[in-house]
Design a protein around this nucleic acid. Sequence first.
DNA 1: TAAACTAGTTTATAAAATAAACCAAATTTA
DNA 2: TAAATTTGGTTTATTTTATAAACTAGTTTA
Lengths: 96, 96
Amino acid sequence: MLPNLNPLLHNQLRLSIVSLLIGLEKADFNFLLKETGASKGNLSVQINKLREAEYLTVSKSFVNNYPKTECALSPKGIKAFEEYVAGIKKYIDPNP
Amino acid sequence: MLPNLNPLLHNQLRLSIVSLLIGLEKADFNFLLKETGASKGNLSVQINKLREAEYLTVSKSFVNNYPKTECALSPKGIKAFEEYVAGIKKYIDPNP
DNA sequence: TAAACTAGTTTATAAAATAAACCAAATTTA
DNA sequence: TAAATTTGGTTTATTTTATAAACTAGTTTA
């Protein structure tokens, strides 16, 4: 039977965030905003959901007097992404 | 930028239905019920959404006095699935 | 003929996604 | 220097979606 897909990752915006972070290891709020095309509100909410699940860590600082929010995947997040990838492949790969 | 994912297919149950039908060309309600593990109500709703989008055709008949609902993917559904597969691969494939 | 079963559909509720509205601090402009 | 604008977000309200529970309609079995 087809495996369950982690509902936290089976969402376009959250999957985008994690997919981008997998390649980058670290990214700030505005980078994610531009790359995903999401609204600020939606991005903020989804980053928080991933943070609550401990899939990523969020560090806030001030750079040039402005607040700066940076995100980085945690090992837990990397593992969840890898499992999600293995799972979705069963749905999309006709020859497993 | 990462492509948008067809929201109709980016749902576990509907993706399961289409994924199963891609391999089978035709399947009845109870087969899909067993293979997906969904509730009857949920399966009924999601089949109807796919039918409304013309991703699959539904034919109803009577076999051994009982109603029988059969589903088959349409060319439109096959195309949508192929596009979805191409899209999600950009999210999960680190080396495109 | 009543109980249980088949094969679904409809509907009510819960959860999720999203955008709009908001906020505070910094900066620019008039 | 006061008002307007921009930055970098968060909170909240609304809409959409997903799901299960309840229901329908008919059949079989005891």
